[in-house]
Amino acid sequence: MMLEVTNLNVFYDNIRALTDVSFSVEEGEIMTLIGANGAGKTTTLITLSGLKKAQSGTISFLGKDITKTTPQSRVAMGMSQSPEGRRVFPGLTVLENLEMGAYLRKDDISADMEKVFAYFPRLKERRKQSAGTLSGGEQQMLAMGRALMSRPKLMLLDEPSMGLSPLLVSEIFAIIRQLNEAGTTILLVEQNAAVALKLAHRAAVMETGRIVLSGTGEELSRSPAVQKAYLGG
């Protein structure tokens, strides 16, 4: 098991955001968490990355308990995240943003840079430009490229389709599939349930801080409850 989350409880002051959240991600798969606004998807991801502390519960990554470790040690172990809202560094150039993604690496990163540019050729054209001047779609590509630069074993993607045109959404999702086929395990958070369920091997549905359903992507897209709530059926 690559990632095992057990009974995670997370609060913002007194507001409970996650209640006994448990799920796992297996090596090599695409797992997706879907759910409505405020369900707790982003809270789950930032707790996995260590930006938010869990009140109780455990996170185990590659067989090690990482619940209390620092964010940087999780990156060093092979976890990286493309966060909600992209959060590229606007005043840094595209190249510098990618360098920050490789912050903990001591080896040569030029090959990885080329790999990112192969996935996202538009970033190469704009590599000297400051990230704040990129379009929303380009910033999304940069956020994903930046997350790739640490050579992650597990990539956490928070709503990569947010605010993108349908054409760009399918482009981004095709790249997620390619990344997965090249060996990266992926945990994808999406509101765009239709696309996410089609792509994912396994999926779970979150509602008000709990996981209420889980199964294979196919199972969930056939489930009447999911169809009614998330697929407009």
Binding site: G50, P71, A76, P83, R87, V88, L104
Partner: peptide, 10 residues
């Protein structure tokens, strides 16, 4: 520019 995003970079 973004402390949280910087932490995500390690």
């Amino acid at each position: 520019e973004d402390t949280g995003a910087a932490q995500l970079m390690g």
